[in-house]
Design a protein around this nucleic acid. Structure first.
Length: 662
DNA sequence: AGGATCAGCGCGT
DNA sequence: ATACGTGCTGATCCT
């Protein structure tokens, strides 16, 4: 496995690490291009390991008979399994490993059908790293069904959501062998793996399998009981489900895509023609050029607040140029990211996304290549995705999933009461907090706007919004907003203690937990606001309360060349993450568990249910037409029961049956 | 000329 | 000083 997943810097935008320089160095290292050099480099890296190439069934079976647990790995010619080939397969014990070449263009390949070892593999515990990729590749290209016991990537994410790198090589050096050299496919090889002789490069593949086992065993021995449970009850079953979900894919309505493409292209041409007349030379896709027109040539805005050209800013301008730019960007986005992108990514008219089941540090999924979790709400674009012949799509979504979870985690009597009534939640909450009759607070009622305000406030609580941004959101003054906020906290007595309790735990232990005990690590909350080489200044800064005095002191100290570390922004950021992660991460727990349970439900199996995708609080599945109605009900029921069991509040799930997604 | 990376932007829950 | 993502284009740096 060559993918480096989930390895993004997640820090305040301003903070930088020294990571980029080492990457540059790696890039400069000379690529190996002649076989003698490759041979020498392979020997240098893998000569110390006990590895060999296996090309016949007897040797393979006899190796597999030596142990019960193996690391495993696959080699492919592309990270997109639908474009690439399966080139080989490797297995490793803790000290021996083998490479089984399947489709090398040079040297000898395995003689026989690898499918024949399926039953042997079923008896073994296979440790992978991002093993979903390998399972997919084996299933797609060799019809070989494998269920991995362990995924080192998922385990690493569970053990430390803030791990600086989730790359196998980095984890291996950090936890298993500090003297092992890190290397990557790219700086070892300059042509596809199948163009090398397995006898020369087999070590590269075989050793990874061994490393997978070594890392996995270390993780099992060192992770908490609860993390182990999450692996075995949630993430591993889920990763097996995702193999099928991703391989199944979702059908595209190509004709409809083409229609959208044509429409958008026409619109873009029109706008470009209009722009060319009055604003010659302007590329509307270039923020820099747009800024030049707005700030320099037309002087529509004063650049003192920066030279941004974002939507909110342009929309205020009320100028034909701004209006055209916005229309252009919208159409360009819809075309390049959606309408044209989907058919381009499809394989035989089917979209196979890749879900990263631990994509976010909260535990949420992400989706890529293509991302199916940010398809525009506009039904025009959702309609690109359609059910197969004779089938229907069923979409089930949790109603206000995160708000239910907030009510449960905070154990807030008012919010729980709101949910126990069969009423509009936000309208009910508005009627309590603003002390108005419920009927007046419903959508379209006399005080319907209070419902909208309540919605913004609850969203604000979830993101731990500051007063000023909330005030902007609901269109009130800061003091009015403050009053509303205070009334909300008074009427919902669970919320404040919940925040404080979570924050206290986070400060003490450095993490916040979801309902299933998934941990999100935070690094700065336990540290003081300020650190300074001059301890007297440090003490003063950390005890002072006057904002102005603090700023002045920092300024003076820095002017004298005294370093001051100011963690206030980071700590405020992490404070917001504490509140949100508990809720967002618990929501992720809920939807993940629902998929696992649904995929094991006998009735759904009988009904021919195939789950196609997850969009955080929504699961989309496909059923044979005649079963869709019943299947939707069953899927919704399962989701509801899983959620209700988890949080102790009756969840609501709405199924929708449709031919195309909407 | 073409690849890698960054900034700015905008789409979703 | 609103949480979590992916990915496009253009700009820029590098080979």
């Amino acid at each position: 496995m060559l993918i480096n997943v989930g390895n993004k810097e997640k820090v305040l935008p301003k903070l930088k690490t020294e990571k980029s320089s080492s990457k540059k160095q790696a890039r400069r290292r000379k690529v190996l291009d002649d076989s003698a050099t490759v041979r020498a480099r392979m020997e240098e890296l893998f000569g110390k390991y006990d590895w060999k190439v296996v090309t016949n069934k007897e040797d393979l079976v006899s190796f597999l008979n030596t142990a019960e647990e193996f690391g495993f790995d696959t080699e492919t010619t592309s990270l997109d399994i639908f474009k690439g080939e399966l080139v080989g397969l490797s297995f490793g014990t803790l000290d021996k490993c083998i490479y089984v070449p399947l489709k090398h263009k040079v040297g000898m390949n395995y003689r026989g059908d690898i499918k024949e070892i399926e039953s042997i593999l079923a008896e073994k515990k296979l440790f992978g790293f991002n093993s979903k990729f390998d399972m997919k590749a084996l299933k797609l290209h060799a019809n070989l069904n494998v269920k991995s016991e362990w995924c080192g990537y998922l385990a690493a994410r569970l053990m430390n959501s803030a791990e600086p790198s989730n790359n196998l090589k980095d984890l291996y050096v950090k936890y298993i062998d500090p003297f092992d050299e890190t290397y990557s496919f790219k700086n070892l090889f300059n042509k596809p793996f199948d163009e090398y002789d397995p006898l020369i490069v087999g070590g590269y593949a075989a050793v990874d399998a061994m490393k997978h086992l070594r890392l996995g065993k270390w993780q099992q021995a060192n992770m908490s009981e609860n993390d182990l449970k999450l692996m075995y009850k949630l993430e591993m079953p889920l990763t097996h489900d995702l193999v099928d979900i991703e391989l199944t894919g979702i059908k595209l309505d190509i004709d409809w895509c083409n229609k959208l493409i044509e429409e958008l292209n026409n619109e873009l041409e029109e706008i470009k023609a209009e722009l060319a007349v009055e604003y010659p030379g302007l590329n509307p896709g270039s923020p820099k050029q747009v800024a030049e027109w707005i700030y320099d040539k037309l002087k529509l805005l004063d650049p003192s607040n920066g030279r941004g050209t974002g939507e909110a800013l342009l929309a205020q301008l009320d100028h034909p140029l701004a209006e055209k730019i916005l229309r252009y960007r919208k159409a360009q986005k819809m075309l390049s990211t959606y309408a044209a992108k989907m058919p381009a990514d499809a394989d035989d008219g089917i979209i196979h996304t890749t879900f990263n089941q631990y994509g976010a540090d909260t535990g949420r999924f992400s989706s890529s290549d293509p991302n199916l979790q940010n398809i525009p709400r506009d039904p025009k674009f959702r309609k690109m995705f359609t059910a197969r012949e004779g089938h229907m799509l069923v979409s089930c979504d949790y109603t206000q999933q995160e708000v239910y979870i907030l009510a449960s985690l905070a154990n807030d009597a008012t919010m729980k009461e709101a949910y126990s009534r069969d009423a509009d939640f936000y309208a009910y909450m508005a009627s309590i907090v603003f002390e108005r009759p419920y009927e007046d607070c419903v959508k379209g009622g006399k005080h319907g706007h209070l419902r909208d305000q309540m919605k913004s406030i609850v969203l604000g609580i979830n993101y731990d919004m500051g007063l000023s941004s909330l005030a902007r959101g609901i269109g009130k003054s800061i003091s009015e907003t403050k009053e509303i906020y205070e009334r909300f906290f008074a009427m919902c007595p669970g919320i404040k203690p919940f925040r404080e309790e979570r924050l206290k735990i986070a400060k003490e232990h450095g993490y916040v937990e979801t309902i299933l005990g998934r941990k999100r690590r935070l690094s700065a909350l336990h540290l003081p606001d300020f650190e300074c080489e001059d301890k007297e200044i440090e003490k003063f800064l950390n005890t002072a309360t006057n904002e102005y005095v603090i700023e002045k002191l920092i300024e003076d100290a820095r002017a004298q060349g005294i370093q001051v570390i100011d963690r206030r922004a980071r700590k405020a950021y992490e404070t917001r993450q504490v509140v949100n992660s508990a809720v967002q991460g618990s929501a992720a727990d809920m939807t993940k568990l629902a998929i696992v349970v649904a995929n094991r439900d006998e009735k759904l199996k009988e009904l021919g249910c195939k789950i196609l995708m997850q969009i955080h609080d929504e699961i989309v599945a496909e059923f044979p037409e005649e079963n869709a109605e019943e299947g939707g009900k069953r899927l919704a029921e399962i989701m509801k029961d899983v959620g209700t069991d988890l949080i102790g509040i009756e969840m609501k799930v709405t199924p929708t049956v449709m031919k195309s997604w909407e």
